[in-house]
Design a protein around this nucleic acid. Sequence first.
DNA 1: ATCAACTTTTTGTGATCACAAAACAAGTTT
DNA 2: AAACTTGTTTTGTGATCACAAAAAGTTGAT
Lengths: 215, 215
Amino acid sequence: MQSSPLTVNESTYRALREKILFGDMLPGRPVTLRGLAESLNVSPTPIRESVRRLIAERALTMHDNRRVSIPVMTAKRFQEIRLARLLLEPELACLAMSSIDQAGINELIEIDLKTDKAVENDDVEGYMRGNYDFHFTIYRHASSDVLLSLVDSLWLQFGPYMRQVYNHLDSITLDDKHRVATRALKNNDVIAFKNAIMEDLQQGMTYIDASNSDL
Amino acid sequence: MQSSPLTVNESTYRALREKILFGDMLPGRPVTLRGLAESLNVSPTPIRESVRRLIAERALTMHDNRRVSIPVMTAKRFQEIRLARLLLEPELACLAMSSIDQAGINELIEIDLKTDKAVENDDVEGYMRGNYDFHFTIYRHASSDVLLSLVDSLWLQFGPYMRQVYNHLDSITLDDKHRVATRALKNNDVIAFKNAIMEDLQQGMTYIDASNSDL
DNA sequence: ATCAACTTTTTGTGATCACAAAACAAGTTT
DNA sequence: AAACTTGTTTTGTGATCACAAAAAGTTGAT
């Protein structure tokens, strides 16, 4: 898919991004440039640029000390993210709807099955990846770079915290809104689809909020 | 206000940001790191990081050639930005409303007067700065970093294009929605305020859209 | 004149170095 | 024990260098 080989810069960015998004880096723990450089076997230079980029995307924070870390979640910030997601994601999903054909629906069903299996196995990262894939497979169909990058930033912001909360999945007994969404998609029912995405999002955020410890 | 002196990195970022936001850099024209470095009298290093940051904020684009430029506007992208703004900004304005006291209202009125004067003098940059100040003085009162940074990214994206369109202001005869907004603010009328922001935004975007040449 | 091939210059990338500020760790004093 | 010094280490910052890829410029053939 990618014709030209990735620059070191790009590959370190993606590596860090994955770590953040799926919970390999927990909030609060400090991050050092040289440490990351060594762990990824590159020089500090591309690390610095990747870190700067992630700071711009709000996935990382730079304190007055010039020290970098995953931002700690606060109740206030959590509600801000929740609101922003509710404003953008259902809308983005609707934009995507007309572009999703039967093959797309099948792909979503497959992702959903994979996600369910991860839940059964108490595989937290697998669940998070599945959830991410489900949503962004939909969102990408909207082919709206502007909205997509905004939403992307939001996921980068609550991802680490989500992982912090989802230590174990066995306690979760959620309605599978993903299934409701795919059904609405198959029926081409815009309202039901938008509602399903909204409820999925609300359900997830409410669960995280309720399970919080230090928030 | 800022206790510690700015790093070179931060000051170059702000300088570039201002240039982009208020139209000193027009879409399409290529940008070179060494060129920026020389024009700001710093080494390429801080420039690279600032540019990366601005790329992450979608204010700049990197092509496959690895060449950087202000993104060219397309009709599609313009509509995406318009939609995103409509989803976020009225909401953000409402969040801010309760925190704006009489002093805040007076500040807004003053900004608005300054803006009107800029229009009279056909001072495009002054108008753009005034418009920016008006909106972000409101938005900052919401004290929602999450939403604010999303909106900030959107302004960085349409700023250069706005300037491209607003070559002269004399042809503009717009209702002053800012005045409507401040009046609603004084009356503590949430609905009227939200509407005023929305209409101001729609009016501006419609004007830009209609005046476009190559979009 | 037009286009191709070659040469030169420019540009982004990534590594390395010097430096100052911050964090750390003992050791000392109160 | 707690708080303050002092010396050491770690860390981010900014500049510089080498290198490869891309642009630009030049020459030559058709």
